[in-house]
């Protein structure tokens, strides 16, 4: 059970949060101009890294805000947390 430092509320137990999958996948601005393959790439393809991974999390049972997390999936170390729209930290 992680202890997650919500950028808006501070440290809270993991059970207040919802994981939202890989971060920094931007919705294409002009989907209609994409080929089926390009659209499928956005829609379906996600990494499943063993190691450092950039993720979206939502403080679902708290402030309802979305934010980003850098987590090492091999040992669950949370390396960084930053707000939506902020630049990811250099690896």
């Amino acid at each position: 059970m992680f202890l997650i430092n919500c950028p808006y509320c501070g440290e809270r137990d993991q059970q207040e949060f919802k994981a939202g999958g890989e971060a920094h996948i931007e919705r294409p601005k002009q989907p209609t101009e994409l080929s089926d393959d390009e659209w499928a790439e956005y829609l379906f393809m996600r990494k499943n890294t063993k190691g450092v991974q950039f993720e979206r999390w939502n403080h679902a049972h708290g402030c309802r805000k979305w934010f980003n997390m850098v987590r090492d999936t091999s040992n669950d170390e949370i390396k960084a947390i930053y707000k939506m729209g902020e630049k990811p930290p250099a690896q």
Partner: peptide
Amino acid sequence: LGKLEDYLQTEWP
């Protein structure tokens, strides 16, 4: 509500 918030906060801030 969760889905709408997601789009609002992340895709269309």
